[in-house]
Structures are given as structure tokens and as C-alpha cells.
């Protein structure tokens, strides 16, 4: 069963949601928001996508491996960024002297905070999707940590 209205609306609205999510994500160091909220928004948009198109013939859901990759990859990215500090013989998660800090108030600023936020966003988006799909389908155990 497909629903014309739902699908059309979704087609229009999902890119905007994702754009907003990306905005929230990337401006985490400038404006309210950041990895957690941006990631959730993106994840929610993907859930919406898979819910609306679950009956359509095309591939309707994010593969488990993909979301797993995002989930783990985000966290690993975060930790690797942190380890960079130790590599540069400073402290863990240091933000000085690795990436250029940039001018406060601009998008490319705050050193590696952007990268870290991106990692968190990936992780959260992946997790939200995994959680939702597992609740709907697997009903199994998962490690819902962020």
C-alpha cells in the first residue's frame, strides 16, 4: 500500500529536514545545537523516509551495516581526534595547535570542534536509526549508548 500524499510531502520535506539537521550540526560551535540535536534531526529524517517508503518497491530502509558503520565510525572519529592531542604531545582532546583555530564567529573556526561534532552527529544519527529499526523489527538488545 502506498500513499501518494504522504510520499509527495515526504519527498519535499525530507531534504529540508536534513538541511536543517546539517545546519544545526555544523554550527554546533556557533549557535545552539550541535552533534546531539543535529544528529537526531538527521536520523529522524531518515526514519521518516523509511517509514513512508516502507511499502514502495525500492529499497526502503537503511541497511543495518550502514547505520552500524555510522554509529561506530562517529565514535571512533571522536576518539581519534582526541588521541591526536596525545600524538602531538599535548593532552587528550586538546584543541590547540593541531587545527587552525580560525576567527571566532565564522563557520570554519573552533579548531577540531567541527570534526568532533561531525563525529557525534554521525554516531547519534546512526544510533537513532538503529534503535528505531531494532525496536520495530528485531525487538532485541542493543547498546543504546551515545
Amino acid at each position: 500500500m502506498t500513499d501518494m500524499v504522504l510520499e509527495t510531502v515526504a519527498r519535499i520535506i525530507i531534504p529540508f529536514i536534513q538541511l536543517f539537521g546539517a545546519y544545526v550540526l555544523m554550527h554546533g560551535h556557533l549557535t545552539p545545537g550541535g552533534g546531539f540535536s543535529g544528529g537526531t534531526i538527521i536520523g529522524a529524517s531518515l526514519i521518516l523516509y523509511s517509514m513512508v517508503f516502507r511499502f514502495s518497491p525500492r529499497k526502503h530502509r537503511i541497511e543495518h551495516d550502514t547505520s552500524l558503520l555510522f554509529e561506530a565510525g562517529g565514535a571512533i572519529l571522536y576518539i581519534l581526534m582526541g588521541l591526536l592531542g596525545i600524538l602531538f604531545s599535548k593532552s587528550f582532546l586538546t584543541n590547540r595547535g593541531i587545527f587552525p583555530l580560525g576567527v571566532p564567529g565564522e563557520l570554519i573556526s573552533g579548531g577540531m570542534i567541527v570534526v568532533i561534532t561531525l563525529g557525534i552527529g554521525m554516531k547519534v544519527a546512526g544510533t537513532v536509526i538503529t534503535l528505531f529499526q531494532e525496536l520495530l523489527e528485531g525487538g532485541g538488545e542493543h547498546h543504546g549508548h551515545n
Binding site: V24, F36, S37, G38, T40, I41, A44, V128, L131
Partner: peptide, 10 residues
């Protein structure tokens, strides 16, 4: 904003 996205949404 986090609460809006996570609490109300997710």
C-alpha cells in the same frame, strides 16, 4: 533544541 529533537522527536 536538544530536548526538542531528542525528547519530543526521537
Amino acid at each position: 533544541i536538544t530536548e526538542a529533537a531528542i525528547g519530543a522527536g526521537a
